[in-house]
Design a protein around this nucleic acid. Sequence first.
RNA 1: CGCGGGGUGGAGGAGUGGUACCUCGUCAGGCUCAUAACCUGAAGAUAGCCGGUUCGAUUCCGGCCCCCGCAACCA
Length: 481
Amino acid sequence: MAEKKAFYITTTIPYVNAPPHIGFALEIVQADILARYHALLGEEVFFNFGSDEHGVKIYRKALEEGKTPQAYVDEYAAKFDALKGTLNLSYNAFTRTTDPHHKAAAQEFWKRCHVAGDIYKKNYQIKYCVGCELEKTDSELVDGKCPLHPNLELEVIDEENYFFKLSKYKQPLLDLYAAYPELVVPDFRFNEIKKFIENGPEDFSISRLKEKMPWGVPVPGDDSQVMYVWFDALVNYISTLGWPEDEKNFEKFWGTKEKPNGLQMAGKDQIRQQAAMWQAMLMSADLPQTKQIVIHGFITSGGHKMSKSLGNVINPFAIVEEYGADALRYFLARHVHPFEDSDFTMERFKEVYNADLANGLGNVASRILTLAQTHLPEPVQVELVPYPEEFTEALNNFEINQASEYVWGRIHALDKKITTTEPFKLVKTDAEAGKKLIVELVKELAAIDLLLEPLVPETSKKIIDAIVANKKPETLFPRKE
RNA sequence: CGCGGGGUGGAGGAGUGGUACCUCGUCAGGCUCAUAACCUGAAGAUAGCCGGUUCGAUUCCGGCCCCCGCAACCA
């Protein structure tokens, strides 16, 4: 028997200094839909999620709240892992960067980059605004001062840090981009990173002085430094597979140099880290590249980026509480563009919920199963039908909205079929023909249900259970006024 | 000339080198199996503006105007 095809997918791992918001939900739901889809195709799926738990911001926040950093990240990691239940996710690994195995993997990764000659120490100057208690880059400054505290002089702090030779990888990265024209999806994001690299990337700092900021993975061979959070966090994509010890699992899912197999989902603010830094790091450590990086857009609310100060932050937990996980999953799948920014308002959400879920899917299931329960003596034998090309093609291109649109097109067609063929009349005049027609309708509902499974797994299960029991289900999506 | 995204009927959104699609809303019919639901039809868009390529542009190219990200929280 041929071995199952291995499918690896990972999201970026969220930084745990704030509760999960709708943006995380988007990325993880997209990933979950793809993971479930590939599992249904019969592939062996490894789906990674996790939490990024080191760094100065977390360190300070923990101290502010009077907690140890570990207690602080434990609390937040649990909140993110709770998304699994809330959104009905199928990930099989939750990688915490404070996990001992992950830390050891990050250190091994560091050593390999070091052996490759890509890590060096140099003096690093940072400008520090005491008013903000933050480092400031030149691009943030206005007239050489912090725009928020123009009356304060910036402090210049000299620190010796380790650097990664990203500059060395300019040509190798450009070669990589040329060799793998589908490395980054969509194209316009790929162009963005190509241009960035063509302009000559600079080496970046990958460590911090421990004395100043102890909350990080210790740098191998130097007690005075800890890794900069980015370096350690990126390694999670492979530490989750048991790298470096479990070579077999690693190769199976992350692939080989000849045939990379890792699929990464990331937001548009992550292009540099994922498509440049991480790829260069993999080259340096002599490991296979990522096969593909899918960059999604942001969710805006009322036309603006969500922010606490604007008060337009959408809380995914509250939505699930009121409408259920599938309702949110559906919205994110169908009404959020897979690559571009999309707007999310509660008004819009409710409108879509009523139109597509209550009046659409929920109602049509109700219509058909009522007919079946009333007129058919026994459950319809449903058969598995292969996924139609229109659906698979969309999902293979990560166009989850198109795939969903296709499914809802079938739902509308089914409503139409009931109205035009009038089975409810036919059973009265010709019982046999009427029953035959109802069986047909149930079969089409079952076929649609199969397509619904990756998108709205809970609803899909309710419908198939109802078909098997030949019983009208409880109201799937009650109308909301 | 810092980088990138966008401007599609009243509203919100897809899509595309060749009759412009969907949802909501409006108007008029139909149906009764269904979650005051569903089906049909109608009104409503000179596709931001101006040029170019083309037999043909909403779609490709150039210019202009406007909106939104690119500091923090943060995908």
